[in-house]
């Protein structure tokens, strides 16, 4: 086992264990906190995938902003007090079945696919490549996404505002 493999398995474990904790923790705060290693693990995987820019953004946005946001909302909605409250609903067995089936199916599929070599070389400088992509081929997506941000900002403020 080389370094890459080791790193990979470690990060994969971080992701999956963290994910497990997210969906299984009784305590919501624990669940929210568990998001951090999960997302960080994902970021690490990005590094291994030579996606430095995405890693950065992942950490900035996901781990930084979204996790905090979730924590805030948990605290605002008193979900932290619900230790005695049941957290799982009645669908557990069925959900297990369905998810299990789906995962198995995905694995079957991806294992059957004959992965060939990549079509070209990875660009050396990541951010530059991303930037160029955003501004030339996918400029429309870029602009629309910014609009979406605007809309959601406004919407969130409107929705979450206190009445009166």
């Amino acid at each position: 086992m080389n370094a890459e493999a080791l790193a990979f398995y470690a990060l994969a474990a971080m992701v999956l264990v963290g994910g497990f904790l997210v969906v299984q923790s009784r305590n919501l705060v624990h669940a929210a906190i568990s998001l951090v290693p999960t997302l960080l693990g994902v970021a690490g995987l990005y590094v291994l995938l030579n996606a430095e820019f995405v890693t950065a953004i992942q950490i900035l946005i996901y781990v930084g902003a979204i996790t905090v946001l979730i924590l805030f909302v948990i605290l605002l909605t008193e979900g932290a007090t619900g230790l005695r409250v049941r957290q799982r609903n009645e669908q557990v067995p069925l959900a297990l079945l369905v998810c299990g089936t789906l995962v198995v199916l995905f694995l079957v599929v991806l294992l059957r696919v004959p992965w060939g070599p990549p079509t070209g070389p990875m660009p050396a400088y990541n951010p530059g490549a991303v930037g160029r992509s955003f501004l030339i081929p996918y400029v429309l997506a870029f602009e629309v996404t910014s609009l979406v941000i605007l809309a959601s900002l406004v919407g969130a403020i409107v929705v979450a505002r206190r009445e009166g």
């Binding site: 669908q91 069925l94 369905v98 089936t101 789906l102």
Partner: peptide
């Protein structure tokens, strides 16, 4: 809603299964 999502997921699984 979560009931509906379950059904949707199950349906998806079914489709994939069948196509496989």
């Amino acid at each position: 809603a979560y009931n509906y999502i379950l059904v949707a997921a199950a349906g998806l699984g079914l489709i994939v299964l069948v196509s496989l």
